[in-house]
Structure formats: structure tokens, C-alpha cells
Computed example of a mutant assay.
Amino acid sequence: MAKHPRWWALAAVPVAGLIFFSAQQTGALWSDTRNLSGGTVTTGTLAIGVGADGKTSSAFTLDNFGKTKMLEGGYSQTPLTVKNTGNVPMKYRLAGVAQTNAALPLTLNVWRVASAAACGATGTPAGTQLYSGNMIGASIATWQTLQPNNSEVLCLRGTVTAGAGPGIKSKVTFTFDANQV
């Protein structure tokens, strides 16, 4: 019987040693200090402008986007100029579209085109299609990049789809996100 307590005591010595050495290994703290000479921090300006004049605004009305007495399959198409009016490169995207009256079924197509003239009132524009789908909730996942003082033109087309009844009106709101590159 006397042998058992010795075995326990001998077995406890390595366990206690492991605990002690493990605590010593993880107990190290590192620190360092360094003095730096003064410097200047400069920030840039990020601003997105819309419309032909590229003015920065929180609200912009597309006067030519919309028609009255449209039938199913009818559409309205207009250019929207997006300009980087800041002094740093930016990326932007269409983040969402909302309608005041969801009873008017609309689809949206968005193309990046070479100029406002390339987005006529009729016909399919020659350009890169960025979105095609429902108007409500429309968004473009891919960020578009613009250098300072540069612009590009988006061609927006809203089409009335099946199920539109007579006399239904809706106002559409486009929301864009912009970030510094």
C-alpha cells in the first residue's frame, strides 16, 4: 500500500513541471517604443456628381426618365452622367432602386455607354450592359472605378411589363454608393 502514494507523487512531478514551464512560455510580453519626427497627414476629397454638368447633389431629378400613357412593353430611356468631382480615385455602383407604387411592374436595364448621344430615346444602346432585371431592388454588384475629374455615362431604360393596369403612376428613386479606391 505504501507504493501507491509514491507513484502518485512521482507522476505529479512531471505534470507540475509542464504546468510551470507552459506558464513561463506564454507569460512573455513584448514592447518597443520609437520616436517619430512630425509629419503631415493629407486627406482627399471624395465627391460624386450626376447629370450633364456633374454637380454634386444629394438629390437629382432625371427629367427625361418617364412618360405618360405607356402601354405594356413601352419604355423610357435616358442617359445619366456620373462624374468624380473629387481629387481621389473612387469606385461607385448602383446600390438600389425603389418605387413609390409597386403596382406598376417595371424592369430596368443599365448600360455603360461612350457618351450621352449613345443613349438615344429609342433603340438598344451600344455599350456594356451592367444590369437587367426588376426595377424594384435593382443593384449592380460590380463597382465602377472613376479617376478624379473623369466621368462616364450610364444609359437607363425603364420598361413597363405585363400586368400594368391603366392610370398607374410611380416615382422611382435610384441610390448610388461611392467609396475611395
Rank of each mutant, 00 (worst) to 15 (best):
Y131V: 08
P14F: 07
M1A: 07
M70F: 13
T61C: 13
N35Y: 12
T107C: 11
S22T: 13
V113T: 12
D63P: 06
T100A: 13
S139F: 00
T142C: 15
G167W: 05
A23S: 06
N109K: 10
E72H: 07
S151V: 02
M1Q: 04
T124E: 09
I48S: 15
A11H: 05
S76P: 00
N64H: 15
M1T: 03
V88A: 13
T26H: 11
T85C: 10
A47K: 06
T107G: 13
A116E: 13
R6V: 13
L71I: 11
V153A: 02
M90K: 08
A162V: 05
K69T: 14
T42Q: 11
A12G: 08
K83Q: 13
F60E: 13
N84Q: 09
V153T: 05
L94N: 03
L156F: 04
P79A: 02
V160R: 05
A102R: 05
L106N: 08
A164M: 06
T100I: 01
R34T: 08
C155W: 00
Q25P: 00
Y131C: 01
G44A: 10
G137W: 01
S139T: 00
A2W: 03
G49L: 01
A138L: 03
M135E: 15
A162K: 04
S22H: 11
L156S: 01
Y131G: 10
A98K: 15
Q129D: 07
V181Q: 14
L106W: 03
A164D: 02
W8N: 07
I19N: 12
A117M: 05
A9Y: 10
A178Q: 11
E152I: 04
T142M: 15
A16V: 10
G38W: 12
T100D: 09
K171R: 15
K83C: 04
S58V: 15
Q147M: 07
D32F: 11
W8T: 01
N109M: 03
T68E: 12
W30Q: 14
L46P: 08
I48W: 12
A164P: 02
K67I: 14
C155I: 02
G120P: 00
W8L: 11
A141E: 05
S58C: 15
G49R: 09
T173L: 01
L36G: 09
Q24S: 01
A138P: 00
K55T: 15
G27W: 06
T56C: 10
N150D: 10
T61G: 13
T161Y: 02
N35C: 11
D63T: 14
C155V: 02
S115C: 07
G163F: 03
G158R: 08
M70Q: 12
T78Y: 04
G158K: 03
T40Y: 13
T40A: 15
F176E: 05
T175D: 07
G86N: 09
S31G: 14
P166S: 14
G165A: 06
Y75N: 13
S57H: 14
G73K: 09
G158C: 03
T42Y: 09
T122Q: 01
N149T: 06
A117W: 08
N179F: 13
T128F: 04
V15S: 04
W143L: 09
F21W: 09
K3L: 15
Q99N: 10
Q24V: 00
G158Q: 01
L36W: 05
L106M: 07
P5G: 14
V97S: 11
